[in-house]
């Protein structure tokens, strides 16, 4: 059992070449199993309360398709760019990996910017807040928790990229990048349900 973390060419997947890497990979996946239930509880609460507007603005009055579409495309694309990053990681190409992760971060940042714009828009133009109604509470909590996950993901990625910028890829940091990528895809999965269940269904009914 060697604890040398340098990268040799015969290593196929640097993210899973060490025990620590395998543990991290499994641990993150299991955590996502728990996150599934966490978000399901938020979704369920939202579905239960989405018509409880207490005389305030309803989902049809609030939501607009264009903004949500742009946000969706941004986040979906960031998912693909992180796949590219991992592709380069498996080819041991650190520079290209950092580049693609950098693009991922920018796309995520763009998504976040639009989300902040969206929330301020609702608050200033519609006086629709967290406290307006049960619908308001449920909406901001569900979408806000997703946004919080994006913030956390971006901080995580930034820390990783800055910390390792000069050190290059190793068996010590490859698992960290890889677990981040899986986490980032999961954020995208949650968003797919948010744009479908919250926004699109909110526009229909």
């Amino acid at each position: 059992m060697s604890h040398d973390h340098s990268l040799s060419p015969e290593i196929h997947d640097p993210a899973k070449a060490t025990h620590e890497g395998k543990h991290k990979y499994l641990g993150l996946w299991f955590f996502l199993g728990g996150e599934t239930v966490l978000f399901a509880s938020f979704f369920a609460t939202y579905l239960a309360l989405r018509n409880s507007t207490a005389g305030g603005p309803s989902s049809q009055e609030l939501f607009g398709l264009e903004l949500v579409f742009v946000m969706t495309i941004l986040l979906l694309t960031s998912s693909l760019t992180s796949v590219y990053a991992i592709y380069h990681m498996k080819n041991h190409d650190f520079k290209k990996m950092q580049l693609w992760f950098g693009i991922t971060a920018l796309l995520g940042l763009g998504f976040l910017g639009f989300e902040i714009y969206e929330f301020t828009h609702y608050i200033t133009d519609y006086s629709f807040t967290f406290r307006s109604s049960a619908f308001g509470s449920a909406f901001y909590t569900l979408v806000g928790f997703h946004g919080g996950h994006v913030v956390f993901g971006l901080s995580w990625l930034t820390a990783l990229m800055v910390r390792n910028a000069k050190r290059g890829l190793s068996l010590y940091n490859a698992p960290k990048y890889n677990t981040f990528a899986i986490y980032w895809h999961f954020i995208d999965v949650v968003w797919v349900f948010i744009f479908t269940v919250v926004y699109l269904m909110g526009m229909v009914s």
Partner: peptide, 23 residues
């Protein structure tokens, strides 16, 4: 949800604002 209702004025369990305590 309980924390937000108690500390930040949300309305998950506040029936007057459409909340539902069965949740």
């Amino acid at each position: 949800l309980l924390q937000f209702d108690r500390m930040f004025g949300s309305a998950f369990f506040d029936v007057a604002l459409g909340g539902n305590s069965v949740i």
